[in-house]
């Protein structure tokens, strides 16, 4: 799985040194065997096998690096971006996708909960790397979830009978749609364009560069925080490419959690992704905790049964900050 990354230029630039050092170490241990091989072909095979072993060590980290998609259909992406901020898609034309998933606020809205909704809005960035979407994790694909969001009157409640004629009058839209799609503006094509934008919103962080071999990408304290993150067991749930988003867990595994006001109802929810977590305060499904350090403390206490020192909390917070996407 990990040697897919070989093909990317970025990796070649950053990681070639570390790969070579790892290879060198491996070769030194197997030097006799290596020089015993006569044909260049077998030597080549040995090098490939050793390289794959070197990459396996990369894959054994609980967090996998993500990479920006290379070959994007820019026109379609820009169209999706326009639709993403278009308020005409909502029932009263007062909100867009961007209202709750503000990219400047890390893909969330900074509110406790959006109006009429039960949960704090999660980040839209890197959403396609999640295996379950939304706090309840009812959807494992973006398309049905997006259709649900657009259809639900509490959220968007799109009136297609109004939207399609309105877009057809819009010159920019009709030009863009007809250059991308065969049949111009239709419900399917609008959903497809938003989906394309949403699923390609993949923005790597400094930490991904660190994982790919750039040792100086994150600070020493963040590295220490990453070790704490693994040692205390945060990485048991917050792991994978999106640092979460792939399993379900309830808040209060070791010590039942009652919430700040004592109103928290314990239920099994999707483990949220920790990418961009430093920007997406307030925290937890009910959005009651405002500071990141408090959230780390609560998680350690109730999920792991541990009491962390202030330095440890600071280090972990530094690590979580290094997970912020690099915006352009």
């Amino acid at each position: 799985m990990s040697y897919i990354y070989l093909s990317t230029n970025k990796l070649e630039k950053i990681n070639i040194y570390s790969i070579l050092t790892q290879l060198n170490n491996l070769l030194r241990t197997h030097a006799l065997t290596y020089f015993y091989l006569k044909s260049y072909f077998t030597k080549l095979i040995v090098i490939v096998v050793l390289a794959s072993i070197a990459f396996q060590s990369l894959a054994s980290e609980p967090i996998l690096p993500i990479l920006k998609k290379k070959h994007l259909n820019n026109k379609k992406f820009e169209l999706g971006k326009l639709l993403f901020v278009d308020t005409r898609l909502s029932k009263n034309q007062d909100r867009s996708c961007h209202s709750c998933h503000n990219l400047a606020l890390g893909g969330a809205d900074g509110l406790k909960k959006p109006v009429n909704l039960a949960f704090n809005s999660p980040t839209i960035l890197n959403v396609s790397k999640n295996y379950y979407i939304g706090w309840k994790g009812e959807y494992s694909q973006l398309k049905p979830q997006l259709e649900m969001i657009l259809q639900k009157p509490d959220v968007m409640g799109t009136d297609w009978a109004f939207v399609i004629p309105a877009f057809k009058k819009d010159q920019l839209y009709s030009k863009l749609f007809s250059s991308i799609y065969n049949y111009g503006i239709s419900k399917e094509n609008i959903i497809d364009a938003i989906l394309y934008y949403e699923s390609n919103l993949i923005l790597p962080s400094k930490f991904d560069e660190f994982l790919l071999g750039d040792n100086d990408a994150i600070s020493l304290s963040a590295k220490q925080g990453y070790n704490n993150f693994k040692d205390y067991g945060c990485a048991s749930c917050h792991q994978g490419a999106n640092v979460g988003g792939n399993i379900f867990q309830e808040l209060g595994v070791v010590l039942p959690y009652k919430g700040i006001i004592g109103q928290y109802k314990t239920e099994k929810l999707r483990v949220p992704s920790l990418r961009n977590v430093a920007k997406t305060a307030p925290y937890f499904s009910d959005g009651t905790v405002k500071s990141l350090k408090k959230a780390i403390e609560i998680m350690a206490k109730h999920q792991l049964g541990q009491k962390l020192t202030d330095t440890e909390i600071d280090q972990i917070a530094d690590f979580l900050k290094s997970l912020d996407s690099i915006m352009e």
Binding site: L64, Y131, G240
Partner: peptide
């Protein structure tokens, strides 16, 4: 030792 849930999830998908 460190199970990767991404793998099993992608198999499920």
């Amino acid at each position: 030792n460190i199970p990767h849930f991404d793998l099993v999830n992608s198999a499920a998908v």
